[in-house]
Design a binder for these strands. Structure first.
Lengths: 193, 193
DNA sequence: CTAGAGATAGAACGATCGATCTACCCGTTT
DNA sequence: AAACGGGTAGATCGATCGTTCTATCTCTAG
């Protein structure tokens, strides 16, 4: 009947790992994860095969959620591609302002996992490509002369916001980036509006 | 007489730690550091008090060297502040292109060291302030209307280059950032030249 | 009722962590 | 010659690492 009262061990583990790997980094110990999730040791290895598998699944889920959040933010911004792109930076401003913000978890994972063969790297790479496409699609709709290049620049601004937001929070990096994003979106020429 | 043939244990440790903490992250084991430096275990604790002390000293040295490198690059670029600022991004292009580039070691250290009281954080924070001043001074010389804010933006672009360079190396982030840097330097208006 | 799947608790594995310690070697300085 | 400081080598400490294991419990399906 599956009439469980709450989320099962798998979900509890994923949620605890999502939280702890962000706050403490992917170097968190297995014991801390098990304790936070209130889950038996064995369950971790049954469901994910090991710590690396759990980390990979956490990143997979998180990228899917973040991509969907980007889409939602752009959807809420209306039809104008310019407004939709700028809305991304408005959302970033709120993310960075958040009291629990500790930088980009994907960049942190990439920097922390020295082994280039770790499954986490493939996941973060795919995520960046998906976001790049998301941005590029809007730029194409804007008839931007160099949509791919402009998407690279916007992604660079996003990375800059997340990095500066973690290291120099008082400088309001999202606001700074938004100004530059306008310049990128307008293709170096003044806005049409 | 101090007629030693090569660098002593202290220097060897610092050099090995500089290399290994960059390639492997600050999570490298003490044993790996000692083996790479070919130094006795005791020497580490005599000179630096422990692993954290060694890491802090590595960062201290590295920030001093990097700041000096920024100054040198700007010095070589002549007297025009605009050219001096853009030279920074040309230098970044070469850094990112380097085969051993693995991202910004200071951001990596900040993200990896969850404890906000770790001495490394104070060192990286001071470094960013020094670089900010370096950039701001040039913008003041340019009579930029908002030198502090523009320096924030340039620093955001630098962070973006180092992040994107580590995660999307094929996109030539330094070139993308240089274009935006020109826009920042020119204060939103076209270049005077 | 019973067999089996899923979860829990916890011992235990070998490996590694950072740190402390003893013992010895060597060059310098009294 | 003797004392000493800096360096090396290596054992050892308790703690923690990720992983595997046995044993028990609790459901649910047949």
């Amino acid at each position: 009947m599956r009439t469980r009262t709450g989320p099962g061990p798998r979900e509890r583990l994923l949620e605890a790992a999502r939280e702890l790997t962000y706050r403490q980094g992917v170097g968190v110990g297995v014991d801390a994860l098990l304790k936070a999730a209130d889950v038996a040791r064995r369950s971790l290895y049954e469901h994910f095969g090991g710590k690396d598998g759990l980390i990979a699944e956490v990143l997979r889920r998180s990228t899917a959620e973040d991509e969907e959040r980007y889409r939602q933010v752009m959807r809420s911004a209306g039809d104008d591609p310019r407004a939709r792109l700028l809305a991304v930076f408005d959302e970033l401003a709120e993310v960075v302002r958040g009291p629990d913000f500790r930088g980009c978890r994907y960049l942190a994972a990439d920097l922390a996992l020295a082994d280039p063969g770790h499954p986490a790297h493939a996941i973060t790479r795919d995520y960046r490509e998906r976001v790049h496409r998301l941005l590029e699609d809007e730029l194409v709709r804007l008839a931007h002369p160099r949509p791919a290049h402009a998407a690279d620049q916007l992604l660079l601004l996003v990375d800059g916001v997340l990095a500066a937001g973690a290291t120099r929070p008082r400088t309001e990096p999202a606001r700074s980036a938004r100004e530059l994003a306008e310049h990128v979106i307008d293709g170096g020429r003044p806005a049409s509006s």
